[in-house]
Structure formats: structure tokens, C-alpha cells
């Protein structure tokens, strides 16, 4: 089975980490973009809503941390899946993140095969969601059509 590449946006203020993480994912065929703050992330998504997964750091400076970003992101781009990846893991942020709709929560340094698995899982979930919406729209359209004819 041919693996469909995911479109991934890495959001982290650790530029060195973002760079090398992106290189590794690209080496495996994923399409990777990067942002270094919550604001940059949201700006990027406004123009690129087709991102499958955002890999989001939690502890970021600049007045908008990962949790704030997740909240805003899910409001504006509900279909984009978010994988929280943090070096500062606490039970509180994990619970909060999941309640806010994150796909999963991983601790740095995370096992790479697990990251790959989660990225693929998130990409598939986004695909399924889109599929469901498409079908629902079709049904709605059909019903509408039925009323007309």
C-alpha cells in the first residue's frame, strides 16, 4: 500500500529542533512546514487550511502558548488535527489539551515511530472527517433536490 504523505506544520520556538525534526520527516516523504509561535501558526493556517496535522509545542513565549493556540486553532480550523508535543509535560496540560480537541499528546523526546504513527492516524482522521462532511453535504443537497423536484 502506498503511503499518502501528510502535510505537517511544526510549531515550536526551538528553531534548531524544528529544523532537524522537519528534515527527518521530509526524509520520510512528509511535506513539512514550520512556524515558531502560536501567532505564526494561525497566520500560516489562514492561508494553508489543507494542513493535516499541526505538531504543537506547549511552552512558547510571546503571550500565546500551545494551549491558547490550540483553542484558537480549533475554533477557526476545526478540521486540522493537533498533536501536542512538549518537553514540559504535566497532567494538567495533557487533560486540558485533550479536552480542547487535540488528537494526542506526546512527551519530548518522543519515540519517532510513535510520532509517525500519530501523524498517520491524525491524517486519516482528518480525511475521514472531510469524507463525512462531503457525504453529509451530498445528502443535504439531495434532500434539497428532492424538495424541488
Amino acid at each position: 500500500m502506498i503511503k499518502i504523505p501528510a502535510r505537517v506544520l511544526i510549531v515550536d520556538d526551538e528553531k534548531d529542533f524544528v529544523e532537524i525534526f522537519a528534515m527527518r520527516l521530509e526524509e520520510l516523504g512528509e511535506t513539512v512546514f514550520s512556524a515558531f509561535s502560536g501567532k505564526e501558526c494561525l497566520n500560516f493556517l489562514s492561508e494553508n487550511e489543507d494542513i493535516d496535522v499541526v505538531i504543537l509545542d506547549i511552552k512558547m513565549p510571546g503571550g500565546m502558548d500551545g494551549i491558547d493556540t490550540l483553542m484558537e486553532l480549533k475554533k477557526r480550523f476545526p478540521l486540522v488535527e493537533v498533536l501536542l508535543l512538549t518537553g514540559h509535560g504535566t497532567i494538567e496540560t495533557a487533560v486540558k489539551g485533550m479536552k480542547l480537541g487535540a488528537y494526542d499528546y506526546l512527551l519530548k523526546p518522543a519515540d519517532f515511530s510513535e510520532i509517525k504513527e500519530k501523524i498517520e492516524g491524525a491524517r486519516q482522521r482528518r480525511e475521514e472527517q472531510e469524507e463525512r462532511i462531503r457525504k453529509a453535504e451530498q445528502r443535504a443537497l439531495l434532500r434539497k433536490g428532492g424538495n424541488i423536484y
Binding site: 525534526f21 527527518r24 520520510l28 523526546p109 519517532f112
Partner: peptide, 21 residues
């Protein structure tokens, strides 16, 4: 622990990337 996790993650990605190549 937290502060060391970040550079560790970077090193892990770098090592993994090198292995891929």
C-alpha cells in the same frame, strides 16, 4: 527534566535523521 527534554528531543531527531541517511 523539562529543560533537558528539549535538547534531548533535538538530539534524538538529529541522530534519527543521520541514521536514515
Amino acid at each position: 527534566a523539562h529543560e533537558i527534554n528539549n535538547p534531548l528531543a533535538m538530539m534524538q531527531e538529529a541522530a534519527g535523521y543521520m541514521r536514515l541517511i
